[in-house]
Protein backbone atom coordinates (compact mmCIF):
# COMPACT_ATOMS: atom_id res chain seq x y z
CA UNK A 1 0.00 0.00 0.00
CA UNK A 2 1.37 3.37 -0.93
CA UNK A 3 1.88 6.14 1.56
CA UNK A 4 0.52 9.60 1.05
CA UNK A 5 2.95 12.39 1.61
CA UNK A 6 2.52 16.09 1.16
CA UNK A 7 3.93 17.80 -1.92
CA UNK A 8 4.35 14.53 -3.70
CA UNK A 9 1.87 13.16 -6.15
CA UNK A 10 -0.05 10.30 -4.70
CA UNK A 11 0.69 7.29 -6.83
CA UNK A 12 -1.34 4.21 -6.24
CA UNK A 13 -0.38 0.63 -7.02
CA UNK A 14 -2.00 0.84 -10.44
CA UNK A 15 -0.14 3.99 -11.22
CA UNK A 16 -3.16 6.32 -10.97
CA UNK A 17 -1.83 9.76 -10.17
CA UNK A 18 -3.71 12.24 -8.00
CA UNK A 19 -2.94 15.93 -8.16
CA UNK A 20 -0.64 16.65 -5.30
CA UNK A 21 -2.63 19.43 -3.68
CA UNK A 22 -3.92 18.59 -0.21
CA UNK A 23 -7.50 19.77 0.03
CA UNK A 24 -8.38 18.74 3.52
CA UNK A 25 -5.85 18.22 6.28
CA UNK A 26 -6.69 16.85 9.71
CA UNK A 27 -3.76 17.16 12.12
CA UNK A 28 -3.63 15.59 15.59
CA UNK A 29 -7.37 16.01 15.78
CA UNK A 30 -8.84 15.42 19.22
CA UNK A 31 -12.36 15.49 20.53
CA UNK A 32 -13.18 15.32 24.20
CA UNK A 33 -16.66 15.38 25.69
CA UNK A 34 -16.76 16.33 29.35
CA UNK A 35 -18.94 13.97 31.38
CA UNK A 36 -19.73 13.94 35.10
CA UNK A 37 -17.34 11.00 35.45
CA UNK A 38 -14.50 12.84 33.78
CA UNK A 39 -13.57 13.54 30.20
CA UNK A 40 -14.52 11.11 27.49
CA UNK A 41 -12.10 11.15 24.58
CA UNK A 42 -13.82 10.27 21.35
CA UNK A 43 -11.00 10.97 18.93
CA UNK A 44 -7.32 11.25 19.68
CA UNK A 45 -4.38 12.14 17.50
CA UNK A 46 -6.30 11.58 14.31
CA UNK A 47 -4.33 12.44 11.18
CA UNK A 48 -5.77 12.34 7.70
CA UNK A 49 -4.95 14.07 4.46
CA UNK A 50 -7.42 14.17 1.63
CA UNK A 51 -6.22 15.25 -1.79
CA UNK A 52 -8.00 17.46 -4.23
CA UNK A 53 -10.59 15.65 -6.32
CA UNK A 54 -10.38 12.61 -4.13
CA UNK A 55 -13.41 10.65 -2.95
CA UNK A 56 -12.82 9.15 0.48
CA UNK A 57 -15.26 6.94 2.33
CA UNK A 58 -14.97 6.38 6.05
CA UNK A 59 -16.10 3.14 7.55
CA UNK A 60 -16.12 1.98 11.14
CA UNK A 61 -18.32 0.65 13.88
CA UNK A 62 -21.29 2.62 15.19
CA UNK A 63 -20.25 5.11 17.83
CA UNK A 64 -16.60 5.17 16.86
CA UNK A 65 -16.69 8.89 16.21
CA UNK A 66 -17.07 9.04 12.43
CA UNK A 67 -19.96 11.46 12.60
CA UNK A 68 -18.17 13.51 15.26
CA UNK A 69 -15.20 13.81 12.94
CA UNK A 70 -17.36 14.81 9.97
CA UNK A 71 -19.28 17.41 11.91
CA UNK A 72 -15.98 18.81 13.17
CA UNK A 73 -14.85 19.17 9.56
CA UNK A 74 -18.19 20.83 8.78
CA UNK A 75 -17.55 23.23 11.65
CA UNK A 76 -20.70 22.21 13.49
CA UNK A 77 -18.80 20.60 16.35
CA UNK A 78 -15.98 22.23 18.28
CA UNK A 79 -12.44 20.99 17.96
CA UNK A 80 -10.84 20.00 21.29
CA UNK A 81 -7.31 19.69 20.01
CA UNK A 82 -5.28 19.73 16.80
CA UNK A 83 -6.64 21.43 13.72
CA UNK A 84 -8.45 21.05 10.45
CA UNK A 85 -7.48 23.02 7.38
CA UNK A 86 -9.00 23.42 3.95
CA UNK A 87 -6.38 24.32 1.33
CA UNK A 88 -4.01 25.25 4.13
CA UNK A 89 -6.43 27.56 5.97
CA UNK A 90 -7.60 26.52 9.41
CA UNK A 91 -11.34 26.32 9.58
CA UNK A 92 -13.29 28.45 12.00
CA UNK A 93 -16.90 27.36 12.25
CA UNK A 94 -19.17 26.24 9.44
CA UNK A 95 -19.18 27.74 5.98
CA UNK A 96 -20.41 27.10 2.47
CA UNK A 97 -16.92 26.01 1.31
CA UNK A 98 -17.82 22.71 2.97
CA UNK A 99 -21.16 21.45 1.70
CA UNK A 100 -22.90 18.88 3.83
CA UNK A 101 -25.37 16.18 2.88
CA UNK A 102 -26.96 15.13 6.13
CA UNK A 103 -28.21 11.71 7.09
CA UNK A 104 -31.79 12.94 7.15
CA UNK A 105 -32.50 15.10 4.12
CA UNK A 106 -32.96 18.18 6.36
CA UNK A 107 -34.96 20.09 3.80
CA UNK A 108 -37.18 22.92 4.90
CA UNK A 109 -40.54 21.17 4.52
CA UNK A 110 -42.43 24.41 3.88
CA UNK A 111 -40.31 25.23 0.83
CA UNK A 112 -40.44 23.75 -2.65
CA UNK A 113 -37.48 21.72 -3.83
CA UNK A 114 -36.36 24.68 -5.95
CA UNK A 115 -36.57 27.07 -3.00
CA UNK A 116 -34.58 24.65 -0.88
CA UNK A 117 -31.75 24.59 -3.41
CA UNK A 118 -32.01 28.35 -3.93
CA UNK A 119 -31.61 28.94 -0.19
CA UNK A 120 -27.98 27.92 -0.55
CA UNK A 121 -27.44 29.29 -4.07
CA UNK A 122 -28.66 32.77 -3.09
CA UNK A 123 -26.23 32.73 -0.23
CA UNK A 124 -23.20 31.68 -2.25
CA UNK A 125 -23.86 33.69 -5.42
CA UNK A 126 -25.27 36.96 -4.07
CA UNK A 127 -24.13 38.91 -7.12
CA UNK A 128 -25.69 36.67 -9.74
CA UNK A 129 -29.01 37.72 -11.20
CA UNK A 130 -32.16 36.05 -10.07
CA UNK A 131 -32.52 34.09 -13.30
CA UNK A 132 -28.91 32.95 -13.16
CA UNK A 133 -29.43 31.63 -9.66
CA UNK A 134 -32.63 29.96 -10.75
CA UNK A 135 -30.75 28.34 -13.60
CA UNK A 136 -28.08 26.98 -11.28
CA UNK A 137 -30.65 25.51 -8.92
CA UNK A 138 -32.67 24.03 -11.77
CA UNK A 139 -29.56 22.57 -13.40
CA UNK A 140 -28.67 20.58 -10.30
CA UNK A 141 -32.24 19.51 -9.69
CA UNK A 142 -32.30 18.20 -13.26
CA UNK A 143 -29.05 16.39 -12.60
CA UNK A 144 -30.62 14.50 -9.72
CA UNK A 145 -33.65 13.69 -11.86
CA UNK A 146 -36.14 16.07 -10.29
CA UNK A 147 -37.00 18.17 -13.35
CA UNK A 148 -40.69 17.49 -12.74
CA UNK A 149 -40.64 18.42 -9.08
CA UNK A 150 -39.24 21.98 -9.01
CA UNK A 151 -42.35 23.34 -7.38
CA UNK A 152 -43.27 20.43 -5.18
CA UNK A 153 -43.16 21.09 -1.46
CA UNK A 154 -40.36 19.15 0.22
CA UNK A 155 -42.92 17.61 2.57
CA UNK A 156 -44.68 16.07 -0.43
CA UNK A 157 -41.58 14.26 -1.67
CA UNK A 158 -40.57 10.73 -0.76
CA UNK A 159 -37.51 10.20 1.40
CA UNK A 160 -35.40 9.27 -1.62
CA UNK A 161 -36.56 12.31 -3.59
CA UNK A 162 -35.84 14.53 -0.58
CA UNK A 163 -32.31 13.20 -0.41
CA UNK A 164 -31.93 13.95 -4.12
CA UNK A 165 -32.79 17.57 -3.34
CA UNK A 166 -30.21 17.37 -0.55
CA UNK A 167 -27.60 16.28 -3.09
CA UNK A 168 -28.59 19.05 -5.50
CA UNK A 169 -28.45 21.60 -2.70
CA UNK A 170 -24.97 20.50 -1.68
CA UNK A 171 -23.52 20.50 -5.21
CA UNK A 172 -25.23 23.74 -6.21
CA UNK A 173 -23.27 25.82 -3.74
CA UNK A 174 -20.03 24.60 -5.39
CA UNK A 175 -18.23 23.71 -2.18
CA UNK A 176 -14.54 22.91 -2.02
CA UNK A 177 -15.26 19.85 0.07
CA UNK A 178 -18.39 17.78 0.14
CA UNK A 179 -19.19 16.05 3.42
CA UNK A 180 -21.67 13.21 3.37
CA UNK A 181 -22.90 11.78 6.64
CA UNK A 182 -24.37 8.39 5.77
CA UNK A 183 -26.67 10.08 3.28
CA UNK A 184 -28.32 6.88 2.10
CA UNK A 185 -28.53 5.12 5.44
CA UNK A 186 -32.25 5.64 5.79
CA UNK A 187 -33.18 4.47 2.30
CA UNK A 188 -34.20 1.07 1.02
CA UNK A 189 -31.54 -0.75 -0.97
CA UNK A 190 -33.08 -0.11 -4.40
CA UNK A 191 -33.35 3.62 -3.81
CA UNK A 192 -29.90 3.59 -2.28
CA UNK A 193 -28.44 2.10 -5.45
CA UNK A 194 -30.21 4.66 -7.58
CA UNK A 195 -28.92 7.53 -5.48
CA UNK A 196 -25.37 6.15 -5.48
CA UNK A 197 -25.48 6.18 -9.26
CA UNK A 198 -26.80 9.74 -9.31
CA UNK A 199 -24.20 10.88 -6.80
CA UNK A 200 -21.29 9.33 -8.67
CA UNK A 201 -22.56 10.68 -11.98
CA UNK A 202 -22.62 14.27 -10.71
CA UNK A 203 -19.38 13.76 -8.87
CA UNK A 204 -17.64 12.55 -12.03
CA UNK A 205 -18.54 15.86 -13.61
CA UNK A 206 -17.79 18.16 -10.70
CA UNK A 207 -14.91 16.28 -9.05
CA UNK A 208 -15.54 17.92 -5.72
CA UNK A 209 -13.35 16.47 -2.98
CA UNK A 210 -15.67 14.28 -0.99
CA UNK A 211 -15.63 12.65 2.43
CA UNK A 212 -18.43 10.22 3.02
CA UNK A 213 -19.36 8.18 6.05
CA UNK A 214 -21.02 4.87 5.38
CA UNK A 215 -21.84 1.59 7.04
CA UNK A 216 -22.15 -0.20 3.77
CA UNK A 217 -18.99 -1.98 2.62
CA UNK A 218 -20.14 -2.23 -1.02
CA UNK A 219 -21.07 1.45 -1.08
CA UNK A 220 -17.67 2.33 0.37
CA UNK A 221 -15.86 0.40 -2.37
CA UNK A 222 -18.09 1.51 -5.24
CA UNK A 223 -17.75 5.23 -4.56
CA UNK A 224 -14.28 5.70 -3.14
CA UNK A 225 -10.72 6.23 -4.21
CA UNK A 226 -9.71 5.39 -0.67
CA UNK A 227 -11.57 3.73 2.13
CA UNK A 228 -10.52 4.94 5.57
CA UNK A 229 -11.18 2.46 8.37
CA UNK A 230 -11.55 3.88 11.85
CA UNK A 231 -10.82 1.95 15.01
CA UNK A 232 -13.54 1.60 17.61
CA UNK A 233 -13.76 4.32 20.24
CA UNK A 234 -12.94 5.65 22.71
CA UNK A 235 -9.82 7.38 21.44
CA UNK A 236 -10.64 6.34 17.92
CA UNK A 237 -8.09 6.91 15.21
CA UNK A 238 -7.43 5.74 11.72
CA UNK A 239 -6.86 2.00 11.70
CA UNK A 240 -6.17 1.29 8.07
CA UNK A 241 -6.53 2.83 4.64
CA UNK A 242 -7.43 0.87 1.56
CA UNK A 243 -6.83 2.23 -1.93
CA UNK A 244 -9.50 1.31 -4.44
CA UNK A 245 -7.87 1.19 -7.81
CA UNK A 246 -10.87 0.97 -10.08
CA UNK A 247 -10.92 3.21 -13.10
CA UNK A 248 -13.38 6.05 -13.31
CA UNK A 249 -16.04 6.47 -14.49
CA UNK A 250 -17.17 3.26 -12.88
CA UNK A 251 -20.30 1.31 -13.38
CA UNK A 252 -21.72 -0.98 -10.77
CA UNK A 253 -21.36 -3.90 -13.15
CA UNK A 254 -17.70 -3.28 -13.91
CA UNK A 255 -16.91 -2.87 -10.23
CA UNK A 256 -18.68 -6.07 -9.26
CA UNK A 257 -16.94 -7.99 -12.03
CA UNK A 258 -13.51 -6.65 -11.21
CA UNK A 259 -11.01 -9.22 -9.95
CA UNK A 260 -9.98 -7.12 -6.98
CA UNK A 261 -13.51 -6.46 -5.78
CA UNK A 262 -13.71 -9.42 -3.41
CA UNK A 263 -10.18 -8.86 -2.22
CA UNK A 264 -11.14 -5.29 -1.17
CA UNK A 265 -14.36 -6.49 0.32
CA UNK A 266 -12.58 -9.14 2.37
CA UNK A 267 -10.03 -6.62 3.54
CA UNK A 268 -12.72 -4.30 4.84
CA UNK A 269 -14.80 -7.01 6.45
CA UNK A 270 -11.73 -8.49 8.10
CA UNK A 271 -10.95 -5.11 9.57
CA UNK A 272 -14.49 -4.55 10.80
CA UNK A 273 -14.68 -7.99 12.39
CA UNK A 274 -11.57 -7.49 14.48
Amino acid sequence: MSTNTINNDLVTENGIVFPSEVMLDLKHLKKVYPTPKGDYTVLEDLNLQIMKEEFVTIIGHSGCGKTTMLSMIAGLNEISGGNISVLGNHIKGPGPDRGVIFQSPSLMPWMTSLQNVLLGVNQVFPHATKSQRNDIAKYYLQKVGLEDAFNKKASELSQGMQQRVGIARAFAIKPKVLLLDEPFGMLDSLTRGELQDILIEIWNKEKITAVMITHDVDEAIFLADRVVMMTSGPKAKIGDILNINFERPRTRKSVLEHNDYYKYRKHLIDFLEH
Binding site: G93, P94, V100, M108
Partner: peptide, 20 residues
Amino acid sequence: DYINVAKVLKLGAFQKVFKV
Protein backbone atom coordinates in the same frame (compact mmCIF):
# COMPACT_ATOMS: atom_id res chain seq x y z
CA ASP B 1 -31.12 19.82 11.32
CA TYR B 2 -32.62 23.07 10.01
CA ILE B 3 -30.32 25.09 12.23
CA ASN B 4 -27.34 23.08 10.97
CA VAL B 5 -28.37 23.75 7.38
CA ALA B 6 -28.61 27.46 8.18
CA LYS B 7 -25.17 27.31 9.79
CA VAL B 8 -23.55 25.46 6.90
CA LEU B 9 -25.05 27.91 4.40
CA LYS B 10 -24.01 30.79 6.68
CA LEU B 11 -27.42 32.44 6.50
CA GLY B 12 -27.55 35.92 8.02
CA ALA B 13 -29.57 36.57 11.16
CA PHE B 14 -32.50 38.05 9.21
CA GLN B 15 -32.62 35.17 6.74
CA LYS B 16 -32.25 32.64 9.52
CA VAL B 17 -35.21 34.07 11.43
CA PHE B 18 -37.54 34.66 8.48
CA LYS B 19 -36.62 31.71 6.25
CA VAL B 20 -35.93 29.00 8.80
